[in-house]
């Protein structure tokens, strides 16, 4: 428990003063051309899209499920489905990554429908207590696991908003499009999600 407190304090110090490089800062420059080539059947073009976006899709799924193996399976499946459904993607204002997030979101929903996967507070607490000693890498992994577990206590929509806004780095407009909601509704969800998560994390740290 003492280790956990130590991690959290150091971690907070780090996040207060660190600029996080956004994943959207470096979009695929020739994305439209690659998508067009992939649509006409060019596997190399789609492989380049995979290289550019696999990490972002993985991250999204990582925070939506609790199992690393499931994360990898679903990430692979996203790109297989994306290849099959290329014709349905209409390049417009939204980037291709938004289309991939939509596929990922549907796969996660299907996964939970099939598995009825749940996590409870005791499991999350167990992870925290069993965390190994404090070095930078382990500390980072531990905090990410804490964040992953904490996100599971949010509603499905709250999770999505936070992951898409802060981890995927999408604009409120793009998040609204993926979630099929208005921007005002997304901002309200974001506020409630941050409140709930903040409260949960404070409680965990005090405990």
């Amino acid at each position: 428990m003492r280790n956990k407190f130590c991690f959290t304090s150091l971690y907070l110090l780090r996040i207060v003063n660190t600029k996080i490089p956004s994943p959207t800062r470096d979009p695929l420059p020739d994305e439209h051309q690659l998508v067009r080539r992939a649509k006409s059947g060019d596997p190399d073009a789609f492989a380049r899209i995979y290289d550019a976006y696999v990490e972002r899709v993985y991250r999204y799924i990582y925070f939506r499920v609790t199992d690393d193996v499931v994360t990898e399976d679903l990430t692979s499946q996203v790109f297989l489905n994306a290849w099959e459904s290329l014709d349905r993607y209409q390049p417009g204002d939204s980037p291709y990554i938004a289309w991939l997030y939509t596929i990922a979101r549907n796969l996660v929903i299907d996964h939970y429908r099939m598995k009825k996967e749940t996590i409870n507070l005791e499991d999350a607490g167990h992870l925290a207590v069993d965390a190994p000693g404090p070095d930078d890498e382990v500390q980072g992994r531990f905090e990410l696991q804490v964040l992953r577990d904490a996100l599971q206590f949010l509603t499905d929509e709250q999770q999505q908003v936070l992951i898409l806004r802060f981890i995927a780095g999408l604009s409120t407009e793009n998040v609204a499009e993926i979630m099929d909601k208005r921007e005002g509704a997304v901002r309200a969800l974001q506020m409630r999600a941050l409140q709930t998560l903040s409260k949960y994390m404070q409680e965990k740290e005090v405990a």
């Binding site: 996040i15 990490e55 993985y58 990410l144 964040l147 936070l162 802060f166």
Partner: peptide
């Protein structure tokens, strides 16, 4: 603070 913690989720790498 909470938002910044979530942003740190960017560090997850496959």
């Amino acid at each position: 603070l909470t938002a910044a913690r979530v942003v740190m989720g960017n560090e997850v790498q496959p």
